[in-house]
């Protein structure tokens, strides 16, 4: 069937409802949040309409700078570890039988959909002194007595990698499964070892996918709001945690909104970079 432009008023009807819902419950809330970021906070947890840049001015503090740098470094590390594990994993995954692939995909989706609360709770238990992995190491004689590995930076990093790994694989999966197998065969025929063929032929072909995935996972990790609280100490808090904290516990909506606007701008600039990369990739 040929696609036709809408002509009569009734043709527009199907899109009217989604546009209305998304407009009212996504665009309007977003606009209110941006407006609140310019409001002035008043005592007692409320705010009044104003037009002040004071909330944005607080970005210039050392405290905010430290949280921002920590968030970016943490998200970068998570993204790097996830790619290091995810790239070989996804490559192997797409070579498995269809049945095995479906099995892995179900497991990955299961972990991906797990609540951050549950992931945080599970890892805090696994890294605790009473129920943790360290008990296992004591049992086999590697350690003298059980130790608590949480809260700490390593625990935060592990939890975030656990959460972001399935996401990384699912983002990589389409490109890897569409990869032409004859590329690998050709380079093998020409005498390259599997590792060499993978690193000199497969990876360069997928370079744009890899960069895009790094950025997508980076944004995903930037959004973590619970794991740094559950598995880390206050110095391991990220921007997302700080926003939640200011909005709910400090009742400072204007400052929380200003930080949220900042986070949106940062994420959107990264999304634009991904889109530009994809457009370039499609042109080749």
């Amino acid at each position: 069937m040929r696609r036709t432009p809408p002509e009569r008023a009734a043709d527009y009807f199907p899109i009217a409802y989604p546009a209305f819902m998304l407009g009212l419950f996504f665009v309007v809330p977003f606009a209110i949040m941006v407006a609140v970021s310019f409001f002035r906070r008043v005592q007692g947890g409320f705010y009044e309409p104003a037009f002040t840049f004071a909330n944005y001015g607080r970005f210039l503090s050392v405290f905010f700078g430290e949280v921002l740098v920590f968030s970016l470094v943490l998200a970068g590390l998570v993204s790097a570890v996830c790619l290091l594990l995810g790239v070989p994993f996804t490559y192997f995954l797409t070579k498995l039988s269809r049945k095995a692939q479906v099995f892995w995909l179900v497991a990955l989706l299961g972990v991906l959909s797990l609540s951050e609360v549950i992931i945080g709770f599970a890892w805090s238990t696994l890294l605790s002194r009473t129920a943790g992995l360290s008990n296992l190491l004591v049992a086999i004689g590697v350690m003298d007595r059980p130790d608590a590995w949480t809260p700490g930076f390593a625990a935060v990093l592990t939890g975030l990698v656990y959460q972001a790994f399935p996401y990384t694989v699912l983002v990589l999966y389409p490109s890897f499964s569409r990869l032409d197998p004859s590329l690998m065969e050709a380079s093998r025929t020409l005498g390259a070892s599997p590792l060499k063929a993978f690193s000199t032929v497969v990876l360069p072909v997928l370079r744009k996918t890899l960069i895009a995935t790094f950025i997508i996972v980076f944004i995903f990790a930037l959004g973590a709001y619970l794991l740094p609280q559950i598995l880390g100490r206050p110095q391991h808090w990220t921007l997302s945690v700080l926003i939640t904290d200011q909005a709910v516990y400090q009742s400072n909506m204007p400052f929380a909104a200003a930080m949220a606007v900042f986070l949106v701008v940062a994420s959107l600039s990264l999304v634009v970079i991904v889109a530009a990369l994809n457009r370039k990739g499609a042109g080749q």
Binding site: L22, P29, I219, I243, A247, L263
Partner: peptide, 26 residues
């Protein structure tokens, strides 16, 4: 109409705390 599509995809791409804070304000 692609704009409506982008609006539908946006909440999932942006950090979830944004949607949450927007909902709270709204």
């Amino acid at each position: 109409a692609r704009i409506v599509e982008v609006l539908g995809l946006a909440p999932f791409i942006l950090p979830p705390v944004i949607t949450a804070l927007g909902a709270l304000s709204f």
